[in-house]
């Protein structure tokens, strides 16, 4: 069972830029939560803060039902240099074990890695270089990596960016399965129709938490404008284009 996430007065600032301010919320366990908002509004920063990757202030807590579980993270993108001979399989194996790639004679690892890739439909691309894949295909591999340890909390940052239809289908099917298994899922998403399909709790973030609720309520046509415009309510703010 996935954890509930409790945020208490979370804020984040870098030098003169206030990215997030006074974010307090409780994300229920075992639910799918979607964070939406305009570019530069702090969505990614919120996700990264929850993962402990930023110097945020305030309190963030995971409330696990039984024991501490695993966390899976699918970042927005990772730079894969095209000329580095890192194959898809290599990348998954890197995440899987310590057993170094140049000394890895363990068949079991390879089998498990290919199984994970198959969940995303990427097993026949296993010997391609990561740098040679399209953006959407790389996303699928990043997703496969996140699922390796069977995580109870899955955090994804714009996971379907650049994905083709087939990828999106794999993705949505997996998310639904995971929710049924009681995992907590947190996604930053742009695609409104996809979000409606997911039947998730939507949180609108733009420097602060504007609203949380069910998709039908939060994504009413009158409110959709908020998802694309910068409205910061502090005069000392500068519009920053960091997304």
């Amino acid at each position: 069972m996935g954890p509930a996430i409790v945020l208490d007065d979370v804020s984040l600032r870098y030098e003169n830029n206030i990215i997030l301010e006074k974010v307090s919320a409780t994300l229920d366990a075992g639910q799918c939560h979607v964070v939406m908002g305009p570019n530069g509004g702090g969505k990614t920063s919120l996700l990264r803060s929850i993962l402990g990757l930023t110097p945020f202030k305030g309190d963030i807590q995971f409330q696990w039902q039984q024991s501490k579980g695993k966390i899976g993270y699918v970042p927005q993108k990772a730079t894969f240099e095209p000329s580095l001979p890192l194959t898809v399989l290599d990348f998954i194996l890197l995440n899987q074990s310590r057993s170094p790639l140049f000394f890895n004679f363990n068949k079991k690892h390879k089998v498990k890695a290919l199984q994970q890739l198959a969940r995303l439909g990427m097993e026949d691309r296993a010997m391609f270089r990561m740098g040679q894949l399209s953006g959407g295909e790389q996303q699928r591999v990043l997703f496969a990596q996140a699922l390796l340890d069977d995580p109870d909390l899955l955090i994804l940052d714009e996971p379907t960016n650049g994905m083709d239809e087939q990828g999106v289908r794999y993705f949505e099917a997996l998310i639904n399965d995971l929710v049924k298994e009681g995992k907590t899922i947190l996604i930053v998403h742009h695609d409104i129709s996809a979000v409606r399909r997911l039947q998730a709790t939507v949180h609108v973030v733009n420097g602060m938490l504007l609203e949380s609720g069910q998709a039908e309520e939060v994504l009413k046509p009158s409110k959709i404008e908020r998802l694309f415009n910068h409205y910061r309510h502090h005069s000392s703010q500068q519009k920053s284009e960091i997304s």
């Binding site: 929850i50 930023t54 309190d59 995971f62 409330q63 024991s67 501490k68």
Partner: peptide, 12 residues
């Protein structure tokens, strides 16, 4: 129930 606090990134 186990509560886990997320540690803020501190480079100090």
């Amino acid at each position: 129930m186990i509560t886990q606090s997320v540690i803020s990134e501190n480079r100090g």
